[in-house]
Amino acid sequence: MIEVKQLCKDYGNIRAIDNVTFSIQKGDVVGFLGPNGAGKSTTMKIITGFMAPSSGSASVAGFDVFENPIEVKKRIGYLPETPPVYSDMFVRDYLRYVASLKQVDKAKINSFVDRAIEKTNLNQVSHRLIHHLSKGFKQRVGIAQAIVSDPEVLILDEPTVGLDPKQVAEIRDLIKELRGQHTIILSTHILPEVQATCERVVIINKGKIVAQDTIQNLSTLERGQGKVFIRLRKEIQDLAGLLKEVQGVIGVDNGANKKEWKVDYKGDEEVIGRVSEKIVSSGLGLIELSPSKVDLEDVFLKLTYGSDNKIESSEKSAQVSSHVTV
């Protein structure tokens, strides 16, 4: 459905994306993942025909984005980072306008607009000025705008950014609902969103693709590795020093304070036993020890921020996990 080959884009001297190649099958829901400024939006803009690449090619449904942009644009629904809504229009009028720009049959415009309003739950505001809507509703109008022409491909650039948790959940449900009818590309830097909605992930960092696979494969990328969370009664300055001799421990990270630690290990459960034994015998008072699998988050952080900088990555990890708890 979507073929991207050796795509490069330079903004002056800065190379925004570098040799990006991937392909997406019909009906896939693909998460486009990367830290801010990784080149997610640029790639998406190129696929939509909004912008031309410096080199390389992209095609949608067999049409080259640059040789046949009109055909490509007919098949794409695009939600940019800022929803492109006219604040002086009514929701329904706006959607009708977009539908006719997308060359929906005149006879079908009304039913398509109704369907988009239905799916995005905009019924109660469809006769209000967009100017008066809250940010969440504006975002939903943006999504309605993208799906109003019933496009084959849906490209959503950070669809949940700036929304409250309930709205985020609603938008995720909506994306799940759209799954199957459309090929969806979704960009985000929020991991749970990808885990909740996507089947495949493309991870991009500094303009380069660092991984692309199914979520299942990525999560088990580092087989045999694990992580345990440890809460102690007493503070300890350097748990890493204490656990240095324990065989199988490969990394120790500090959590929120000196009583909470995360320990990476390689091997089976015996390692956990040895760790707990060591802690208990040194009289630190083990309150909690909970094992957790290596999840997408770790893979993501390892791939994008690099494993050499453990401290930084654990900080980021704390940030990202705060998204989960929100």
Partner: peptide, 14 residues
């Protein structure tokens, strides 16, 4: 300024 121009540029318009 309001980024609504993106909409026009990504619609099948010349």
């Amino acid at each position: 300024k309001l980024r609504t121009f993106d909409l026009l540029l990504t619609c099948p318009l010349k």
